[in-house]
Design a protein around this nucleic acid. Structure first.
Lengths: 202, 202
DNA sequence: GGTTAACCTGAAACACGTTCCAGTGGCTTG
DNA sequence: CAAGCCACTGGAACGTGTTTCAGGTTAACC
């Protein structure tokens, strides 16, 4: 986390992505997930990721310009999987507020299954500075979508509803951090999530 | 942020704190604040802090076992000052929810005045792992106290009120991060704070 | 004044994120 | 086939957080 120079590296994502490169990218993300699932944030060491995905260090940095970028991309990946799962088996609660709370608790249980991975991803997400804002924003939009889906309102959300969703998202991130650093019990996580979901509708 | 070994260093805070040591501690914190007010998190370099407070690097580490500890202690310091200020001039709004929102917006304006300092402190706070949980917890308790004071309820808070305060605190931290990383405008910060304060009482 | 334990200094060394570069291999283009 | 362009490799090098240690300083106690 030393230097903070802006990215002189040109944008490389959109145009030239061969199949080979996509495979490499998947390999890197998969190695990252594997390493993070063991030791968490600290175990995701760039040299180890490079070696574990059979890629030179320089190449790893060509794909992901920093460790934070790498972990935020991993989070995006995991969130997309979660989103798929949720699409297949959406929450069944009657009340919108209960559906959101249920959805978040489901996500939380997934985190409990892989606490080290969660640690790595969430720490990266909140530690990210401006140079990662585009990627963090993508994650944020995904989260928003997931919550809005769980609310299941018919038309487009009102400005007020968007505020509420943002606050729920804030609480979600922060309560995760609190839990990961051992300062909140699982019961407290549930209570806080249910409390903030009380903002929906009333 | 390399290694993560627990502290083999014995507890040294409570018993033997001479006046000289207290002065040294203040000097370190003051140098930290000064450095952070310029370049933010990255500018708080342990060697620079040591030099700037006329202390050997090893001594700095004796007082604060890591950069994160150092910055969390700085945050605690700043929060105490804020608490004093608030005690002298408490919020004047009639509604508890408005008093809390007003108090937080006042704190937020303080952050706006020193965005780099805010960056350093908040990033440290959310990046802290278990080895700092005691210190982070102290900051959290202070924040809780400030919010409860602003609510100004007569007796001790109910469990439900404590939940609400926790959620407000979550939102406060997370919205700060979002603002610091340039992903939320000041107007949005205000809206989110007012939204979460809607949880008080209704 | 001397002893002793705790603290402090200065400097070296290590770990890991990050950058840089010279060489290599594969691809398209002429 | 030759030339040229890229991405990739392997490895060195740098910056900063953190650890360690040998020796000097301080302060309390006899």
């Amino acid at each position: 986390m030393g230097q903070k120079t802006a990215a002189p590296r040109p944008a490389l994502c959109p145009p030239p992505t061969t199949e080979r490169q996509e495979a490499r990218r998947r390999g890197i993300l998969s190695a990252t997930t594997r390493l993070a699932s063991r030791g968490g944030f600290d175990a995701v060491q760039m040299r180890a990721v490079a070696e574990s995905s059979n890629v030179a260090l320089g190449t790893l940095y060509r794909y992901f310009p920093s460790k934070i970028h790498l972990l935020v991309a991993t989070m995006q990946d995991q969130l997309e999987q979660l989103h798929d799962t949720l699409r297949k088996r959406p929450p069944t609660e009657a009340d919108p507020s209960a559906r959101v709370a249920g959805t978040l608790m489901r996500a939380f249980r997934a985190m409990q299954r892989e606490p080290h991975l969660a640690d790595a991803m969430v720490r990266a997400l909140t530690f990210a500075d401006r140079s990662v804002s585009a990627e963090v924003d993508a994650v944020s939009r995904l989260t928003t979508t997931i919550i809005l889906d769980a609310m299941g309102l018919g038309g487009p959300p009102t400005a007020e509803q968007l505020s509420v969703v943002r606050v729920i998202e804030h609480t979600w991130h922060s309560v995760l951090i609190t839990w990961l650093s051992g300062r909140a019990s699982i019961a407290q996580v549930r209570v806080d999530i249910e409390t903030v979901c009380g903002l929906i509708r009333p």
